[in-house]
């Protein structure tokens, strides 16, 4: 793990600021627990966490926030956004929170969190159904949803179907409603997903938890295992759920597992 001290490009060409949407829910009584910052994946906005998870986390005493990456949800449109700009958005919001935050990234938001961890010493990180990119991601997506994925491979929009994202337990009306709200990520960021730069080493050695479902139609189990191995852990699995664990019918189970893990105050990882 080498530390990158020289960051000439970041100094010389800082990311242009963009107006950001941040939704939040705080507990009625401050209990000294670390704030959570949820980072949605490509196409999703802060709304995806505002649906259930923010309230639930606040109910259990954790101040909970979700942001929309630029170009998503209620944030400023940014068709040319890059992964670096997304990571910048996350670090900016995290540093504005009153205390060291736990970063929770979903889908490709986990890759963004991976990059943000190299620029912000998070208390801990949680990767939910992480899409860390690479050609295997494209392969899996093509197999499951050729019609929605193929245009994306040529710079078009990525269209995910409700059945890729949710289990059959979620009523069709809800599934369609959520799917209709999906936007699309910046073209350059989407391209970068195919051959992403490896995130630099995380600063401050945060403990990392990986959550997912073996029945996820976007992230195969092998990808979950790979992601967890990178952070010296094993994934926590929720069989029967779709890719969008925070919106699926049984959304309560993964968030409770996540908060239980934080309650145990995981120690920082050794080494680094």
């Amino acid at each position: 793990m080498t530390d990158r001290v020289m960051r000439a490009r970041e100094w010389a060409r800082p990311v242009r600021p963009a107006r950001r949407e941040v939704l939040g829910s705080v507990p009625q009584l401050e209990q000294g627990r670390p704030p959570l910052l949820f980072v949605p994946g490509f196409g999703h906005g802060a709304w995806a966490f505002a649906e259930h998870w923010l309230e639930h986390a606040a109910g259990r005493g954790f101040p909970a926030y979700a942001l929309s990456l630029r170009g998503h949800g209620g944030s400023e449109p940014a068709p040319e956004a890059t992964l670096r700009a997304y990571a910048h958005d996350v670090v900016q919001v995290a540093a504005e929170l009153p205390r060291r935050a736990v970063l929770v990234g979903h889908g490709a938001g986990a890759l963004v969190v991976g990059h943000a961890l190299a620029r912000y010493p998070a208390r801990a990180a949680v990767l939910v159904a992480p899409v860390l990119g690479g050609w295997s991601t494209l392969g899996a997506a093509l197999r499951r949803n050729p019609a929605g994925t193929l245009p994306a491979a040529f710079g078009g929009g990525l269209r995910l179907t409700p059945r890729q994202l949710f289990s059959r337990e979620l009523p069709d009306a809800d599934a369609r409603r959520y799917a209709d709200r999906l936007g699309r990520a910046g073209r350059r960021a989407q391209w970068a997903l195919l051959n992403p730069d490896q995130p630099e080493a995380a600063v401050g050695r945060p403990p990392v938890l990986v959550l997912g479902s073996p029945d996820d139609q976007v992230v195969p189990l092998s990808a979950l295992n790979r992601a967890a191995r990178r952070y010296d852990s094993a994934p926590l699995l929720f069989p029967g759920m779709g890719h969008d664990l925070m919106l699926d019918a049984r959304w309560r189970e993964p968030i409770d597992a996540l908060l239980d893990w934080l309650d145990k105050e995981p120690a920082t990882r050794p080494g680094a």
Binding site: E10, W11, A12, P17, H88, V91, A95, R119, V203, G204
Partner: peptide
Amino acid sequence: SRPFTQFPDFPMPDS
């Protein structure tokens, strides 16, 4: 300017 001044792991606000 800001990018040169802030701590490398705690950026100053964009605003």
